[in-house]
């Protein structure tokens, strides 16, 4: 439309020019020559315009075709698009290829999530199996056999502890699965980290006192940080519980908070047996338990849960350890994001 207007304007100008020439100079030859020249120029203008139009139409057609590939999910063909040229089309192709990649990655991610949910379910069924079987056996024994009272009381006590274990297991499982399935949305708020830390420590004081392990906390009274207090406390509690569990009697646990440029670092150091360097990555896996720590009660879900919670807040956990001397877990929480 715009092109047509320009062309029309040019044509009108030409006609005006011709009449001006003819009326002012009364020279037919001059007029004829200028008419020819103008017509030639108009023709060139027309050619240029139609060329531009054709190029734009081709360009549009090509984009359309390539987007169709994306639409039809023919990733093979998308991968074969040329995006290594110094042309506009190549730049668009490059974006199309990246979109295809990201779509593929997202598909893969959701598949992976499904898988992990499945494995979580199988893990749960596996983990629940033992206490369930135990409970069933105990229940049967109590119901069908004539037992002395003392024995019965003892069995009921065992049953209670199994139920406790099952309860703990199920609570953890529910937490994990809700976290993993994305049912829990972490709510980040500008809150005092000191309070969060206090909540975590208060949960661990009883078992720590039992082993006579003092917990020293170094934290400013006012340490505002953007985080989800409830779940962060849960994560820190898990790390600390882990530390208490693997520490000998009369050792000490030290918790310190440092505010760095981008992250706030919470160090939790124990004087436990330590973790071999090769296992640094593995201890955060679900249901992973050190070969040497089978004797200690636990299911290997605490650190996993802690890492999930921290990562969901754009933070991360690292571990450093010296065998026989102790380990330091560092929780990094971002200051601003």
């Amino acid at each position: 439309m715009k092109n047509k207007m320009i062309f029309l304007a040019a044509a009108i100008c030409c006609i005006g020019y011709w009449s001006y020439l003819f009326l002012c100079f009364h020279n037919p030859v001059l007029t004829a020559v200028s008419v020819l020249v103008c017509l030639f120029l108009l023709w060139l203008l027309y050619l240029q315009m139609s060329r531009t139009e054709r190029i734009v139409a081709d360009f549009f057609e090509e984009i359309n075709q390539n987007l169709d590939l994306l639409f039809n999910k023919s990733y093979e063909s998308i991968n074969n698009l040329n995006f290594l040229e110094e042309t506009l089309m190549a730049r668009i192709n490059q974006k199309i290829v990246r979109i295809a990649e990201i779509l593929a990655a997202e598909r893969k991610k959701s598949a992976k999530e499904k898988m992990s949910l499945q494995s979580l379910i199988s893990d749960i069924s596996h983990q629940v199996k033992t206490p369930m079987t135990n409970l069933k056996m105990l229940h049967e024994t109590i119901q069908h056999r004539d037992l002395p009272d003392a024995k019965r009381t003892e069995l009921l006590k065992t049953m209670g502890s199994q139920l406790d274990k099952l309860d703990f297991l199920l609570t953890s499982m529910v937490k994990t699965s809700r976290l993993e399935a994305g049912l829990i949305q972490l709510k980040k708020e500008e809150k005092n980290l000191f309070n969060t830390l206090a909540a975590a420590v208060s949960g661990i004081t009883v078992p720590a006192d039992k082993k006579n392990i003092p917990i020293e906390v170094f934290c400013q009274d006012q340490c505002l940080l953007n985080h989800d207090p409830k779940w962060t406390a849960e994560a820190l509690f898990n790390v600390m519980e882990n530390a208490v569990k693997y520490s000998p009697q009369n050792s000490r646990i030290r918790v310190s908070v440092e505010k760095w440029e981008m992250y706030t670092k919470i160090n939790i150091s124990d004087q436990g047996r330590g973790i071999p360097e090769a296992h640094y990555g593995k201890i955060f896996q679900r249901f992973y338990r050190e070969e040497s720590s089978q004797a200690i009660e636990g299911i290997g879900i605490g650190l996993y849960l802690a890492r999930e919670i921290i990562q969901k807040q754009n933070g991360y956990i690292m571990v450093q350890s010296v065998i026989g001397k102790g380990s330091t877990f560092s929780v990094f929480l971002p200051n601003a994001f």
């Binding site: 060329r51 190029i55 081709d58 360009f59 110094e86 042309t87 506009l88 089309m89 190549a90 730049r91």
Partner: peptide, 10 residues
């Protein structure tokens, strides 16, 4: 054969 539009990165 299409006419390519050059990338303008001047």
């Amino acid at each position: 054969r299409r006419e390519k539009i050059k990338n303008n990165n001047k």
